[in-house]
Design a protein around this nucleic acid. Structure first.
Length: 829
RNA sequence: GCGGGGGUAGCCAAGUCCGGUCAAAGGCGCUAGAUUCAGAGUCUAGUCUCAUAGGAGUCCGAGGGUUCGAAUCCCUUCCCCCGCACCA
């Protein structure tokens, strides 16, 4: 149902924009490579290609059934050579420009997927697909894409995007820029001889006088180098292996105890000249910064805990104004701002100023340099799996890694493979064995395939020119259509697809393929549909709502209507089998109405409502407030009478059409139209026809009827006659003056002879109005009379009794005397 | 811990930016009446409490405050959801 929801949101928007006269590119494509398909195929004992094709066919049936107005001529499927050859093409282009490289690194490995993962695909230390399985670290040589080259630009452009703030924030956090200083320390041996140097990145250079030790990450190559041949070697080696053997989740678990070992070396803090010990610790991350952390236990909680555990010294160098700290009684690190102490020439400065001054000093002395660090890592794109784009590279014994020439693309994914014994490509000699493009000697094909996020990073460009067999797309076509004006997707893409696609756009721009910076101008984040139990729909929970069963039972239009009527589409919502009945009911009412309505002349009240609805619905759809739009449409529908003019009926159908394309198209035709409603033009609002007095009339009549009911219920007697007294003419004069807000209301109104004739009652009424802080707008006396006279039949029918409407002047009744503008006197008898 | 979003009547959900027409839209559920042999469906009304004349009281997580007036503005506090998280 989640897919249906997402598609419906997009289709409504596309239909709306189309009717508004835009040339809308609204395509569909299938991100059909990938592990889920491969695994499902293996499980089902079939080939991924067969499995994928049937899944797509199935999808298409559902999508067509949903009435989605896709341009099917542009459909793409990423597992087709027509598509993935261009993945290979871009891979080679990136390789040429240095954006693709190969390196050995400690990488994320998901045992369930049996492949490596990019950083973005590890969530809370687990594979994004397998929340129940920890990701392991393995040292492997892999293909990477240099996304970090664009880290700064990716960050800078976030602010200019018309995206939900939370997604923008997630991107910023993910890119994770931090400004600091890289410091270089001399490393000395036991006897104080300088033997090496080590670099460390810090954002808190103001705390350098508080450094008491330094830790290296377990993976840091210097760890083993320093202990080699010493009595510490065995212990440290065991420690390092132990750390590496832990899963990411174990290593980063909250509140876990930190541990480490001394490395037998020291370093000199150039600021103090002090010699402090060098440690290896599990809390230092090799991938971030330089993989080494200067430790300031007094001002960093992690260092504080570590120092406490191993009895390492602590030195306070920042205190809150006017306070002192005693290291013996300090219960936690002090990480806030304050005044510098025990920091040589910087004493007395506030620490923020000191940060700059110390950085200046470090740079002057050559001890370090200002550095900007990003959390974003390069994108690990190779996967040890079959169902993906083959990486177009060849390993030659003599030439090394050689790219496949562009003319030889695509490197086809072989069909004939067997599963079960590792990567099927590796075990396929026909695929693996090849000749080196350079020396023509024997060579092996790269057997890794690409992360499927590579496929999805540029598909929107392919939509512009999906049949092009000579190029990924023609530049003039992308120039016409792109960037995407409106993108719709879930928040789960925030730090994966949306990062990669943005990177791709920038990289392709710099390679000369595109002339814009960002792929998706506006992003709308749809909410999630939860099962009736309130949980996310999942097969394992058994709370899935099968779209086809729903379509069958309620029909497509009712389903579409329901999906966007409950809540704003950007909010999560809980599926409700009851509530969809309400949508179905409405659709049935619309159908019945259009089956019986006669065309004729509409009344001005309906015209007024129609135009107000056009105005509001247009605005609501444009702002994705579909639930509001539907509420307006319902209200408008309630106002329609058995005879309406054709234009009114057509406008109503137009407003409803994006939501319910089928029934509206049907009745559009029955009204005598030859062309499709879906390509007709969106109605425009005629402000002239909107008269707020109609609302007052409705309110007045409703109010009177409600009052009658209430009185009847209180006296518990069915009335025989109902007398309704329209307030005295002079009360309207007074009320209108009061609405204008005069200060001397009483004397002002008493100047009017008609009012004065009412005597004390007039003064009293004026006074009571002045006491009210808010006055409702009212109708003129005569309009009230007309409105109520028009409603006599209605009231008579409801209460099955006679109804008399008269002016209060015509009666001496006490009820007549209390009549007010907007609130006629009522007498039941 | 940091950041973001929320808490509105039996349920879902508007309203909050720009305070008053807010006992608070709409939908669902429920109740009553009409239609019907009956049910379904449809239509009408009601659905916080009290009330023998259209009224009164209480209410928008909790507690304070500003204001003639607060669901709406300010402060404090509790709870829920989401993202990031040993990032130096």
């Amino acid at each position: 149902m989640c897919h249906a929801f997402n598609y419906t949101i997009g289709d409504i928007y596309a239909r709306f924009k189309r009717m508004k006269g835009f040339n809308v590119l609204y395509p569909m494509g299938y991100d059909s490579f990938g592990l889920p398909a491969e695994n499902a195929a293996i499980k089902a004992g079939t080939h991924p290609k067969v499995y994928t094709d049937s899944a797509i066919a199935n999808f298409k049936v559902q999508q067509r059934a949903l009435g989605l107005s896709y341009d099917w001529s542009r459909v793409v499927s990423t597992c087709e050579p027509d598509y993935y050859r261009w993945n290979q093409y871009f891979f080679l282009k990136f390789f040429e420009s240095g954006l693709v490289f190969r390196k050995a690194a400690s990488v994320n490995w998901c045992p369930k997927c049996a492949t490596v993962l990019a950083n973005e695909q590890v969530h809370e230390g687990r594979c994004w697909r397998h929340k129940d399985r920890d990701v392991e670290q393995r040292n492997l040589e892999q293909w990477f894409i240099k996304t970090t080259k664009y880290a700064q630009e990716l960050l800078d452009c976030v602010d200019g995007l018309d995206w939900p703030e939370r997604i923008k924030l997630m991107q910023k956090n993910w890119i994770g820029r931090s400004e600091g200083v890289t410091l270089r320390f001399d490393v000395v041996d036991d006897s104080g001889v300088v033997v090496d140097g080590v670099e460390t990145f810090t954002t808190r250079v103001d705390t350098v006088y508080g450094i008491t030790y330094l830790v290296l990450a377990a993976e840091h190559p210097k760890v083993l180098e320093y202990v080699k041949g010493t009595e510490l070697e065995a212990g440290v080696l065991a420690f390092v292996e132990g750390v590496k053997g832990q899963s990411t989740i174990e290593r980063t678990a909250e509140g876990r105890e930190k541990s480490g070992m001394f490395l037998g070396r020291y370093f000199i803090n150039p600021f103090t000249g002090e010699q402090c010990p060098l440690w290896v610790a599990d809390y230092a991350l090799y991938e971030y910064g330089t993989g080494a952390v200067m430790a300031v236990p007094a001002h960093d909680q992690r260092d504080f805990e570590f120092a406490g555990k191993y009895g390492l010294p602590m030195r306070v160098v920042i205190v809150p104004e006017g306070e002192t700290f005693d290291t013996d009684t300090l219960e936690a690190a002090y990480a806030d701002d304050g005044v510098m102490v025990d920091s040589g020439v910087f004493n007395g400065l506030n620490n923020q100023d000191a940060k700059e001054a110390i950085a200046d000093l470090a740079e002057e002395q050559g001890w370090g340099w200002r550095t900007i660090n990003f959390k974003l890592r390069d994108w690990l794109v190779s996967r040890q799996r079959y169902w993906g784009t083959p990486i177009p590279m060849v390993h030659c014994q003599s030439c090394g890694v050689v790219p496949v020439p562009v003319e030889e693309l695509p490197v086809l994914l072989p069909d004939n493979v067997s599963f079960g014994g590792g990567n099927p490509l590796e075990n396929n000699p026909d695929f693996v064995n090849t000749n080196c493009p350079k020396c023509n000697g024997p060579a092996r094909r790269e057997t890794d395939t690409m992360d499927t996020f590579f496929d999805s990073s540029w598909y929107y460009l392919r939509y512009c020119d999906s049949q092009n067999s000579a190029a990924p797309f023609a530049p003039e076509k992308t120039a016409y259509w792109m960037p995407v004006d409106q993108y719709i997707g879930g928040a789960e893409h925030a730090t994966m697809h949306l990062i990669y696609a943005r990177f791709f756009t920038k990289a392709l721009r710099d390679l000369g393929y595109l002339d814009f910076d960002e792929p998706f101008t506006r992003l709308f984040n749809q909410g999630m549909i939860h099962g009736e139990d309130g949980f996310v729909m999942s097969k394992s929970r058994g709370n899935i709502i099968e779209p086809r069963a729903i379509f069958k039972r309620y029909g497509i239009d009712a389903t579409r209507f329901f999906l966007v009527s409950l809540a704003a589409p950007n909010k999560d919502m809980i599926w409700s089998s009851d509530a969809i009945e309400g949508s179905k009911r409405f659709i049935n009412k619309v159908i019945r109405y259009f089956e019986t309505v006669e065309t004729g002349v509409s009344n001005p009240m309906v015209e007024s409502k129609l135009n107000a609805a056009i105005r509001d619905v247009t605005e609501d759809i444009a702002g994705f407030k579909y639930n509001f739009a539907l509420r307006r449409i319902r209200e408008l529908f309630d106002a329609l009478t058995p005879v309406e003019n054709r234009a009114t009926l057509e406008s109503f159908l137009k407003l409803l059409h994006p939501f319910c394309p089928h029934i509206t198209e049907e009745f559009w035709e029955r009204l005598g139209n030859k062309d499709f409603l879906s390509i007709s033009s969106w109605p425009s609002c005629d402000e002239e026809k909107i008269d707020p007095r109609f609302e007052l009339v409705e309110e007045l009549v409703d109010q009177v009827r409600q009052d009658i009911r209430q009185i009847r219920d209180i006296v518990k007697e069915e009335p025989e006659t109902i007398k309704i007294y329209i307030a005295q003419a002079w009360k309207y004069m007074v009320y209108e003056k009061a609405l204008l807000g005069s200060k001397n209301l009483i004397s002002e109104v008493m100047a009017d002879p008609d009012v004065r004739r009412a005597g004390k009652a007039a003064a009293k009424f004026a006074q009571s109005l002045m006491k009210r802080h808010f006055l409702k707008p009212i109708l003129p006396q005569i309009d009230e009379k007309t409105a109520l006279t028009d409603s006599v039949k209605l009231i008579e029918d409801e209460f099955t009794c006679g109804v008399e409407i008269m002016f209060a002047e015509e009666s001496r009744s006490e009820k007549a005397a209390r009549a007010e503008p907007g609130r006629p006197g009522i007498e039941l008898s």
